[in-house]
Every structure is written in C-alpha cells, then in structure tokens.
C-alpha cells in the first residue's frame, strides 16, 4: 500500500543515525563533524533544547495526600535531525531514568507514543525537535482525558473499550467462500482513509467532548466503525450504526476538527464521522 511506503521513507529520513544529509551526500557522525571543524558543508547542526515535561507518579503521595503532577525541565543537546522522541530517550538514558513514556516501533507505525507536544497531540517519533521551535522550552504532556498512570503514560483502557464496542472485525453470514471475498476498486476506496488508523488515541484525546466525561465513544472508535460500515464485504453495518446511535455516539460530535488535525496518519476523521452520521440519518450505507 502506498501509504505504508511513504511512511517508511519518512521514518528513514527521521532517523538521527542516518549518515546521509538532505542531498544524499554522506558525512561523518553528526556531532563529530560539527564540533571538529565548526560547520562543514552539509553538517547536521547541534543545539541545546529544553523540554518542559509534565511529571506524575502515584508514589509521590505524602501523608495520605494524593500525588500531584508537576513540571520538570531538562536541557539536552540534540542533532538537527533528532525527533522529540530522541530527546526523551536522551533524558531517560542520560539524566533521569525514572522518566516514563511509551514507545515501541519509534517510526510512526505502532501508535504508542502519542503525547501532547507544545499543546497539541502528536506522535513523539514523527516530530522533529527543530520543527517545534526549540528556542523556547518544548512542553511535553500526556494526552488529555485518559487517566494518567505515570508521567506520559495514560491508561488506554477506556479508549480500547470503545474500540471493542464498535466490533472492529468482519461480520458475515452464510458459508465462507472458497476463494477471496471480491471487491471492486471503487468499493475499496470508500473506506480506504479509515484503514490507516494505528489506534494511537491522538484523535480521541484531542476531542473536547471526550475530555469532559470520557463517555463519548470518540473519533477513533467511529473511524474504526466506519472502516467496516462502508466495507461492501461486511454485513454488520446495521449493528454498528445502532451502537453509534447511542447517546454517547456520533451525535456528540461537535465538529471541532481537533481530531482531523491531530491524526498522525492524516485521516480525515471529521469527514468519516460525517459519513457515519449521514448513514444513520438515511439508514443506508
């Protein structure tokens, strides 16, 4: 799939140990080249950046008082090619091993490291430090609306609960065909956008309605319902639409577009929700 390919290219370009600059010319390790001759052509600039991180640990509780979140600043030297995730790694490995965050693939595919960087939901592995104004301290906070477990790690269970409730799997009746279930290119294109979801929760935790009480199904659950509702091979559309007709379902969407802007995969989330609303209004897919 083309989106996967572009993802891989982006990820490679983001890697800080890549010893090829924008023009494809090889050079030495970024740090060495810059410090050795102070600005060799094509050298990767190095600079200091301050990260202002929202810290929380239940273990900080004192005398029966619950623990409170606090801000802590760290200053690290990063390469111009470093991502926010690399800066977090540097802090964890070199300054404070207790800093806690999730990350797995670190290349924008697994969706583990969604966090709030300078006030907006991003994947830490897809944001270059140089792109978020490193002149000022970069604030890093956990995503909103989900219970914080420690530092940047939140309890994703409410999020996955909603995901499970929309039944994100193929529902069919009758005999399983001996060959593949056929689908035209037009039929496939209807839900192409919503197949890209990596369940990072950047959209759901950017939604002002979700922040209020966490009961709203949230954009991600609706996106994943959309993926099957508009799949011509699936027969469970009515059931899923009924689930999303709930008082906590699609009708709580207030079209703030925070979700569409937060999605690291560029899914047009608000548009997908809009299509589900229309399907519910007309009771036809």
């Amino acid at each position: 799939m083309s989106s996967t390919d572009s993802e891989a290219v982006e990820a490679a370009a983001d890697r800080n140990d890549e010893q090829v600059d924008g023009d494809g010319r090889p050079h030495g390790r970024a740090g060495e080249s810059a410090s050795a001759d102070g600005g060799q052509l094509g050298a990767i600039p190095r600079f200091d950046v301050t990260l202002r991180i929202r810290r929380y640990s239940a273990e900080d509780a004192e005398d029966g008082k619950p623990a409170e979140a606090r801000w802590q600043e760290f200053t690290v030297t990063v390469n111009g090619t470093d991502r926010v995730l690399d800066a977090l790694h540097k802090i964890k490995w070199e300054q404070d091993g207790s800093l806690t965050f999730r990350r797995s693939c670190a290349h924008g595919v697994c969706g583990s490291d969604a966090m709030r960087i300078n006030g907006v939901n991003r994947l830490a592995c897809k944001v270059l430090v140089k792109d978020v104004n490193p002149d000022k301290p970069i604030t890093v906070e956990p995503i909103k609306g989900l219970p914080v477990e420690k530092d940047l790690v939140v309890d994703m269970e409410p999020f996955f609960q909603s995901y499970r409730e929309v039944m994100p799997f193929l529902i069919t009746s009758g005999h399983e065909p001996t060959r593949e279930r056929k689908q035209s290119q037009e039929e496939r294109a209807r839900f192409d956008d919503t197949t890209k979801c990596i369940l990072c929760a950047a959209c759901t935790s950017s939604c002002p309605v979700f922040w209020t009480d966490g009961q709203y199904f949230g954009p991600a659950a609706i996106v994943n319902a959309h993926r099957f509702i508009f799949d011509s091979r699936d027969e469970g559309a009515d059931v899923r639409l009924e689930v999303l007709n709930d008082r906590e379902g699609v009708w709580r969407c207030r079209t703030t577009f925070n979700c569409s802007e937060a999605c690291p995969r560029g899914i047009q989330v608000t548009k997908a929700i809009h299509e589900v609303k229309r399907a519910l209004l007309t009771r036809s897919v």
């Binding site: 269970e157 409410p158 409730e165 966490g214 009961q215 007709n245 009708w251 519910l280």
Partner: peptide, 23 residues
Amino acid sequence: APRSTPYRRSTSRRSNYEMYSWL
C-alpha cells in the same frame, strides 16, 4: 482480572432521541 470494569459505559440507551435532537 484486567481493570476494564470501571470504564464500562454504564448505560447504553439505544433510541433515536439524540439523532432527532441533533437534527
């Protein structure tokens, strides 16, 4: 047991009420 129970959506009211309200 996994900690999923406290987050279960307490009531699921399946009616068209919210849809008509929205409309």
